[in-house]
């Protein structure tokens, strides 16, 4: 049985409980009073299909699939406007990331969502050397939609790149593989362990 199915069984259609129990800061969702100040305060609000406050309402209404497959929470840029203004002090930014992560773990996150793709790219990039290789990460972003558009993007940003090199904010040799952290395998082990604990926790929660 997949984790997703297990969770569905376990919470027998009480998605609010499921979120409270499994999503980072998800316990706060119950405290929302639907004032909508988060929705209005989000600088990228226009891009959201469902606003945070609406997502919280959907959670209460057991719209599990709609919430977890939504790309809305992937739109959050962590500006913290909503947290600052929320009259109930809900850590909305964190809940958005928590929901996104949870959806990803259950395999429900929207595949085509660029934010999700970028997050994954960022993660993989970082895990290779234990630190982010900015040059590679930048290039992979430029070439995301194919070779031709990648070249175009690179040319468009040529000046920016040159300036960054001059200011020693970018090292061209990093393309060769780049430097890593001292104890890479140690770090990888550590992360693996954390991931295992998290997976175990979810596994246990789903029982």
């Amino acid at each position: 049985m997949s984790l997703n199915t297990a969770m569905v069984e376990k919470y027998r259609n009480n998605f609010l409980q499921e979120v409270a129990g499994n999503v980072e800061e998800g316990d706060w969702v119950k405290m929302c009073m639907q004032c909508g100040v988060c929705a209005g305060s989000c600088p990228l609000g226009n891009a959201w299909e469902h606003t945070p406050q609406k997502l919280f309402m959907m959670i209460r209404a057991n719209k599990r699939d709609e919430v977890l497959t939504s790309d809305s929470m992937w739109m959050c840029t962590s500006c913290y406007n909503c947290i600052v203004r929320c009259p109930r002090e809900l850590p909305i930014t964190h809940i958005m990331h928590g929901l996104a992560t949870y959806a990803k773990k259950l395999g429900l996150a929207p595949q085509s969502n660029p934010t999700q793709w970028f997050s994954e790219t960022f993660w993989n990039n970082m895990m290779k050397k234990g630190r982010v290789n900015e040059l590679k990460l930048g290039l992979s972003l430029y070439f995301k939609d194919g070779f031709v558009s990648g070249i175009k993007e690179s040319i468009a940003h040529q000046k920016l790149g040159m300036n960054m090199m001059k200011a020693k904010r970018m090292a061209p040799m990093e393309i060769m593989g780049g430097h890593g952290v001292k104890d890479l395998s140690g770090l990888q082990k550590m992360i693996k362990k954390a991931q295992d604990i998290e997976a175990e926790r979810l596994e246990a929660n789903s029982k």
Binding site: K30, M31, M33, Q34, M57, R60, R88
Partner: peptide, 24 residues
Amino acid sequence: LRTPGAAGEDFYRAGQDAMVTFRK
């Protein structure tokens, strides 16, 4: 939701905290 005053709003939050689901 008519939970006015200091006591009212406190009790509303307490209800939410206890996992009561509020739907307009």
